[in-house]
Design a binder for these strands. Sequence first.
DNA 1: AATTTAGGCTAAAACGTTTTAGTTCTTTTC
DNA 2: GAAAAGAACTAAAACGTTTTAGCCTAAATT
Lengths: 342, 342
Amino acid sequence: MKKVSISDIARKAGVSVSTVSFVMNDKAVKMRISREVIEKVEHVAREMGYRPNQLARGLRTGKTKTIGLIVENISNAFFATLAKSIEDEAKKYDYKVVYCSTDNDEGKARELINMLSQRQVDGYIITPTLNLSEDICRLQSENKPVVLIDRYFPQHEEIPAVLVDNYEGVSRGMEYLIAKGYRKIALVSIETEMAHMKDRLRAYSDVLSRHGVEPQERLVKIVPYSSDHEAALKEVVELLASAGKDVDAVFFLTNYLGVLGIEAIKKLKIKVPTELAVLCFDDNDIFRLYTPTISVIRQPIEAIGQKAVSTLMERLKQPGEEPFPPQALIRLEADLIKRESI
Amino acid sequence: MKKVSISDIARKAGVSVSTVSFVMNDKAVKMRISREVIEKVEHVAREMGYRPNQLARGLRTGKTKTIGLIVENISNAFFATLAKSIEDEAKKYDYKVVYCSTDNDEGKARELINMLSQRQVDGYIITPTLNLSEDICRLQSENKPVVLIDRYFPQHEEIPAVLVDNYEGVSRGMEYLIAKGYRKIALVSIETEMAHMKDRLRAYSDVLSRHGVEPQERLVKIVPYSSDHEAALKEVVELLASAGKDVDAVFFLTNYLGVLGIEAIKKLKIKVPTELAVLCFDDNDIFRLYTPTISVIRQPIEAIGQKAVSTLMERLKQPGEEPFPPQALIRLEADLIKRESI
DNA sequence: AATTTAGGCTAAAACGTTTTAGTTCTTTTC
DNA sequence: GAAAAGAACTAAAACGTTTTAGCCTAAATT
């Protein structure tokens, strides 16, 4: 069974290709095609099981109704949830999503942008890696709108970004720890030069200083991105080994680190929250169900996805050649979910 | 900045469009294009930042180098991991993946197949819903290969499927429970007519019978797919309320149900494994880290993804019009991971 | 009666590729 | 010295659409 094309229908219905096209695109009335012909064509099309070839359509119109989504790693719960929310939201606008994962690799990210661009996606939603701003600016200069999610480039006002308010979120968490009397607060973060993580780190130091606590270097552990599970675990275990003495609380700056942290805590048999208070940035099933339950700063994942899509749609419908207007960062507030770990 | 096409290059290099095409596709030598011209064209192409338009290419060649992946829900850890493994594996063959989620809705699944077919993907990897076999057979009759994952249609030998050996996996788990002396084994499954879940259920009954234990209806809880979190939780809580008396072990048949189960166990403050032994089909971070750690039957997710892709590739390179050969189910073995919960 | 307007359609170009079948020289071969 | 072979390219069709411009007939307006 071969695919049926518009000209097969035209032949069978005894009309021209153009007529069929008009009917299929609801332009029949505007083009004054008669009722009978419209019905005839619609009937034949249904009968033959016609389905328009989107490649041809895209080639002709320059629009594919597809958005390219680049995340760090689709198997990570945070990005998987975000992706689903973007997929669902895009569907409302009748857009399809093509995803891919960078694994936080600059080169891979570049390849992916290339690949999506070759496939003529109409716009992009990207979790950027370091040094990607040039490539992204190029996309915009080719009139393809981009919206960043989760991360941003501080010196590029012209690239819109939707993300949680990292500084505010971490500040709120820190204030809570301080308010509860903790002063020897350890921090676990991931090694990266990217601004969103720097914002989180900055909040940590700022809140400590504001309360007259000197930030101590030995309380801050930055685990290398590339390290394997075991190596990373070892680092966290080291940091928390002195829990109850030199450390009375720990703040994990990402989901993944929090899970790692739980593993370390379990291994060291640390009593939470009596020996160590625990707080994590980003929620996860595990934090809700672990004993004790772990308090978190929860990102509004759904809202980030929705806002990213709506911002992109805004730009997609902008006609022609004008460059995109600058757009300030869109920062969404995080919630502090208080559980048993602090 | 407009996109640069093959004819822009041709003009600038002073050669014909065909020549450029040959050079870009490494057919230059075969077509006896001279060294100088090749270099000239390559230079101009690089200089102008040429990137082939895959729509046009796909339209002309009928191949898009894209595979459509349909899963139940990309935000579910199992499918997210599977998707990542498929994405990585496909990349090795230089194929791109387009994913989408059915949310287990038959209609939605059909829409997605339609959409992917319109986008001319070369082949499909599908987690099917009920009643989807006809649509899938249609794809194959249009010469688009399909590989099912995780689930299958028992009466359709012509559609290849890659999945864990569900019967064997659950049997192994049950034998373990029996060997440990448990006899009042409860089961929690999800409502579905699909064969993979029926296989799991059958294994449960068969093993019990083989050991002279009469399967009891009140020990089997089938939670409706559509029920919300709270409702589903309530069902599990009901089942487990008599733990320690009428129930001495519980086997959750999916990842999601296991998480729900932990929630119920936590709520009921059941002591595991003394009052209740716990086993779950599918691993998850939570099972590894919960106290006590939960034993699981682990699916070989990576292997499923890899095998699905390689099976698809096998069929993709089959030339022309011949129908696809039948292909027996590919069942991969699951591992029993023994932890503290039993 | 001659021109306009409207109604109902179609021809053909265009989108950016790939690929088949040439074309035009130059060099061999007999 | 004519025919054949080889080298180095090119013209043009085709893939399946959309869309602009236009054709033809009939009705309406001057």
